[in-house]
Each structure stands twice: as C-alpha cells, then as structure tokens.
Design a binder for these strands. Structure first.
Lengths: 253, 253
DNA sequence: CGAAGTGTTGACTAAACTCAAGTACTGTGG
DNA sequence: CCACAGTACTTGAGTTTAGTCAACACTTCG
C-alpha cells in the first residue's frame, strides 16, 4: 500500500504529455475507439477509468494469466502482442488465438470462474486490468457496457467458429492466407500498414494455431514468396498481391 | 388447472401424464436442472416463465433461426436435437455444433445483432423462446441471471476451443471418439443411458462437424465395430469399451 | 564467439481424400 | 403392404496433401 502511494506520488511529477504509456487514461488512449471505452460516453468513462489497473508492462514470455488461475479480471492489451493457448490432456500446447492492441482477453474465465487458457506476452506488452466485479457492476449500471461485454464474448464465439471452419475445410495455403489477411485487417483497424508488418509470432506458433507443422508453414511461405504473393523476410511480411491471398481464402477449390 | 383440463381435451386421448411438452412451465420442466431455470429461485422463476414463448414443435429440417436473421431471442431446447451450421464463403456447409435438450442456442447473435449460424431441427423438436430484451432485463434485475448468461457464452467459447484443438491435433479416430464421449456425457446429464443411444445426426453431419469425409467416418465406425469398441447398428450406438474410447481421445499417440 | 533456438529444404511416408461401385434404409404413392 | 425412388451408408482402389525424419542455415543473445 505504502509502495503504491509512493508510485502515485512520483507520478504526479510527470508532465502530462510525457506520462509513461501505462499511466494514460482511457479518454486519451490512442486505442479507445476499438477498446472497452467505446461502450461509454465521456462523463461515465470516468467510472471505467477509476477501476482500471494499469500494471507495469510484461516482458516477452511473461503471463497475463494462466490456465486454471482464478478468474478475477479481464484485460485490455495496450501495446504488444499476446498469444492464448491451452495444454491438451496429453501435455501438448494448443494455441487458440493471437491478440493485438485494443483487444480484450480473459473472458473465457467467466463460466468456470477460472481461466480456460493461458495468455502469454509474445513481446513486451502493456496490459490494462479491469477487475471483473467492477466490470459486472458497470454492466448493471450502464446497459451499453453490458451489451458491449456480451458483444465481445459473442465476437469471440464467431471468431472461434471461423477458425473451426478454417481447420475443418481448408488447405495449408488457405489457412495461412486467412491468418495473414486477419492480421492485415487488424493492423488497418489500428491505422497501421495493412500490407507490410512484422509477424509477432513464431512459425511454430502459426503452425500450432492453424493445425499445421512448422515445416508446412515454412514451405507455404516459401511458395508464396516464389510466386510473388508475399515478400517474406524472416518475420517481416509484405503483401505483394492481396487479391491473390483473398482468392485463396475464398477457396476457389 | 382448468387450463390443463382444457388442454388435455384438445390433446384427445392423452392421459394427464403425457401433456404436450411445450405447455409445461419451467418449474415443472424435467430439464430445469440443466437449463436456464437454474439461474433463478422459485419466486423469481415466475418472471422467467412470463417471458418464455413455448412455440409449437418444429418438424425435422425446420429452422429455429437462420444465419443473418435478426437476433431477437435465445432458445432453449426442450426436446429433439438441433444442429448449428454456417455457409462458408464458397457456399459449403460447416456444421458448428449439435445441441441437446436443456441446451441454449442463439447466443452467437448478440454482437452483430444477427445470427451468425443457422439452427435446424434434426428431428421433431420443441423449443422455448426467450426474447433477448427480456433476458437482458432479467439479467439487470437478477445478478445470478446475468452471471448465468455470461457463463453460457463462456462455455460456448470453451467448447469451441476444444473443437479447435480436436480439429487441429487429432486423428479421425480421436475426433470420433471425442464426439461419442461428448454425447454420452450429455445423455448422462439428462439421466439417459450413457452407453446406448441413437445418434441424432447423419454420418455426413458428423464428418462435416469433425472435418472428415463421410467415407472416413464410416470406416472409423466399422473399425470400432470390428475391434469391439462399439456396437454400431446404423444410428444405434452401444459403447462396449468406454475406456478404450477414453484412451483414444487422451491421444496416447 | 559459440550454443541454443528458429527457420528452411529435401526425401520419404502415412493418413485421409477422391472416385467409384454397390448395399441398405426411409418414406411415399399406388 | 409393397414397390420404387431417393438418400444414406459402406467398402475398395488409387491419389494427394501434409506429416515425419533428417540435415543444414540463419539469428539472437549470453
């Protein structure tokens, strides 16, 4: 407690414009148009601000939460990238999703009161924490917040179902095209280049997520490179022919 | 009570014990321990009863709702079986789930205000309809109801993620074993035999759901029949060696 | 620098798919 | 109640895609 007070004091000396990113308020956050704040208007936004903890950034490999942790909060990604995964019965890892700045994670824990997946930072990541009790209280108070939380969960369901379709019906090339286009879209939502970006995850993670081996992922990238669809430079990707990619996912098979 | 007599008249020669299922109240419903009513205690249960529409049963092949229908309500399955599916961009069907009596469908529609899947009766099915407005109102009034709806959605997420893992990591035999065990468990929850039951869906639907071709599904059933794991008689299944099945899904690979 | 991790490429293999043919149900109309 | 049509299911033979195993190259970082 003492410690927290001390931190808060030191925070007061910082000029407003230079405050460390993890101390910014929702009202000023660059991501507020795609994150939780879109559920609330200005005066009510303070209620949200008041309950959010802006913890110190996680380093690569550190966990936001782990499978079976008690479910106490949901989390908004402010910067960095997070992967969610679970361990199968026989101890293998299954990557269930990649999450980008502005996205909310942790909603999986509601039903069982504990998390059903682990969430790990793929690189340094700043995370906002919203205790679920508070989120529930805000939901009861502001219908738009209740609606938004329902909506987030339902979006997660839709996303999972899209992945199911991908895994169940599509070839390796189709799966990888779909992932690249998804990343491209999410970059666009954050006003970043939709055609040139760095993949935050390893080939192994991609393969794991898409139900493919590393070798297959690597081969598909090589093939895309060779036929001029992508420029691949390690994790740096440039989409050269986006229509080609779109054609592949729409499974012209 | 008067009403009941009247209903019985119209039901012709049915004895009292056979009242048409779709007129029962939640308080008397055989499924209330696994369905929405578990969220509420007796006096409050009336509020739920008051908003539920018990429509006339659907016949095989009729839809509860269709993809892109406006989202107006969620639905509880009282009897019969329902499959959920969506059409992929290129017009193929993707089965996303099978639903059993006592289960809730339609929550997928919340975020976009329209349904993301179609839901179709696999055989005659009685469905309870709860307008979502009313469900939301009940949720604001009864925290346990809000919690239960959150919980249902989060369960759906977890289920989808399990399916993702299945599709991404497991062989044909593992997938089919998992489906059979899931059906067995859900039968047990409804106090039906966990080892002997009729599959409500076709081989084609199973294959579609599990990302396999009909032929592969058929071959796996034959193999299980041959090696004494199952007795398969068309859609009638008897589990002869449940530990064998469990062993297969726990992927001793 | 060197070790460990990460990614690429090749040769071979296996699981599931496709195509094809045939059998068994199911439901409808005579 | 049977005959028939149409669908659903099964089985076999051959093919294909992605997986496995193995060797090697490139990063990254202590």
């Amino acid at each position: 407690m003492q410690q927290i007070m001390a931190e808060n004091l030191s925070e007061k000396n910082n000029p407003v414009s230079c405050r460390s990113a993890f101390q910014t308020k929702c009202g000023n956050c660059r991501l507020n148009s795609i994150c939780l704040p879109i559920a609330l208007q200005e005066p009510d936004l303070d209620s949200l601000d008041r309950v959010i903890h802006r913890n110190k950034p996680l380093r690569k490999g550190e966990h936001v939460f782990r499978e079976n942790d008690n479910f106490t909060a949901i989390y908004a990604i402010r910067s960095g990238f997070v992967k969610a995964y679970r361990l199968t019965d026989d101890g293998k890892e299954q990557v269930t999703g990649f999450y980008f700045p502005g996205e909310i994670i942790g909603l999986d824990g509601i039903s069982q009161n504990k998390h059903s997946v682990s969430a790990k930072a793929l690189e340094t990541a700043a995370i906002c924490e919203i205790p679920f009790e508070d989120a529930e209280a805000l939901s009861s108070r502001f219908p738009s917040m209740q609606r938004h939380l329902f909506s987030l969960m339902s979006q997660e369901i839709i996303q999972d179902q899209q992945l199911i379709t991908l895994l169940s019906k599509n070839t390796a090339e189709e799966r990888i095209s779909a992932l690249i286009l998804s990343i491209s879209d999410r970059n666009a939502a954050r006003k970043l280049s939709p055609t040139s970006f760095r993949l935050p995850m390893s080939r192994t993670d991609i393969g794991n997520y898409l139900g493919l081996t590393v070798e297959t992922v690597s081969r598909v990238f090589s093939r895309f490179q060779k036929n001029g669809t992508l420029e691949v430079n390690n994790k740096e990707i440039t989409i050269l022919d986006i229509d080609q990619l779109r054609g592949i996912v729409t499974s012209e098979a």
